[in-house]
Write a protein that binds this DNA or RNA. Sequence first.
DNA 1: CCCACCCATATTGCGTACAAATTGGGTCAT
DNA 2: ATGACCCAATTTGTACGCAATATGGGTGGG
Lengths: 242, 242
Amino acid sequence: MTSGEPAGSEHRVSEGHAALAYDRIRQAVVEGAYGPGDRLVEQRISEEFSLSRTPVREALRRLESEGLVVFRRNRGAAVRSMSAEDVRDLYELRARLESYAAELASVRGSIGSCDAMDEAAEQFERQVDRSDDVGIARDDRVRALSDTNNRFHQTIVAAAGHERLTQMLAGAVDVPLVFRALRGFERSELQRSAEFHRMTAHAIRRGEGARAGRLMSEHILLGRDRLMEDLYRSDGAGRERE
Amino acid sequence: MTSGEPAGSEHRVSEGHAALAYDRIRQAVVEGAYGPGDRLVEQRISEEFSLSRTPVREALRRLESEGLVVFRRNRGAAVRSMSAEDVRDLYELRARLESYAAELASVRGSIGSCDAMDEAAEQFERQVDRSDDVGIARDDRVRALSDTNNRFHQTIVAAAGHERLTQMLAGAVDVPLVFRALRGFERSELQRSAEFHRMTAHAIRRGEGARAGRLMSEHILLGRDRLMEDLYRSDGAGRERE
DNA sequence: CCCACCCATATTGCGTACAAATTGGGTCAT
DNA sequence: ATGACCCAATTTGTACGCAATATGGGTGGG
């Protein structure tokens, strides 16, 4: 630490304060603690996390480049709010990018990465099967499901071995939406997702890139359609808070 | 200004110092004034531009998110150096993204945007025709050509009306490479590019999205192939300076 | 009653100071 | 001569303070 902290009060600073601020703000946005349109005032956030404004500012600009927040000149950051068209477009884009990733993974992926995909797909399936276990809070179940789902998709992206594509997908997968989508899924829809995971992984393992790409695309677009039904039944979602 | 400047010494600060630093560093990288692997020390750059480190730092992180520079923990920024595989992958990605943009533009583009495409395509053609005009320095010709080429591509992206895609392409089009590619093009190759511009714009105007997408993809991949021939004949390009 | 204008306030944008970490070179022991 | 180690210099990471700018409410005039 430079000066402020009592030294030893945190677990690990190894990643720096900026990265910490980034993680925390991101999680808050992803899980909806900060809703679309909410302003993200640097001063307030830095106090909330007991940091200075500098790393917070850096984190916000990084989130901006990932599209999670928007900046308005001399007005600072606010959580991005998306219209129905934005959601539709974003998912189409993501479908194309991940479809490309699946194609590449079919060609470049190692046996090990295929095993990792299968492992994630199987865990997802098990979590779906246990999805009405009342022992766990709903939000925790969704979070676990979301984590596993992310791991499956990220394994494929990693197997594609395309650094720039990886970087882009980090920004194109609008995690708040994915989280919300999984939250709204019925059990049968989760099972269908699991099915697509298996089929996609299988196609990749066999080196059938075109099929893998189409399956991945369809998987994502199915998720989109379901999500949009949800979003525009309950509330307008294009709304601005405040 | 806060304190440093003599007040009134610059033309317009309306965009802020950070944006200015961003523009200047970006241009330096694009045109090769800073070569791949060169370290970008904040202190030195801020003195070079008579700013403080803060806006420079912000500009560098933005360039990082666009993939032009890389950061290494506690070592700061350096101009990204790309291997042959990186270049190949990046162009493939760009081809897919711009192909998608062309498809969208075919559906969503207005008459006005089609006119703008044609205008840019025609100007490009005229500049190619004058491309052995000895009255202008080679670098200036290349810069003008590059600007017009960018305008053509950006018009299509804008016509696609997909905010996120626009943002991504801003980072996916590795401008240093495009600049270098155009620099190395023979007249006949420039003419072929102009031809593809015309064909693509025509397909978009007629609403034939699939064709427009394929033409755009082919246009970009042809550029890639030509560029890579160039890059890996002259020098290794995967090299690290310093 | 409504509109234009102005001022207090909240918040960003930038400059600067200082501490921590990495690096490269020099030194000492083997 | 070679290897490990340590120290100093460079450079990043963070905190903090001040000036500039947008904002929203209140006031006066039409």
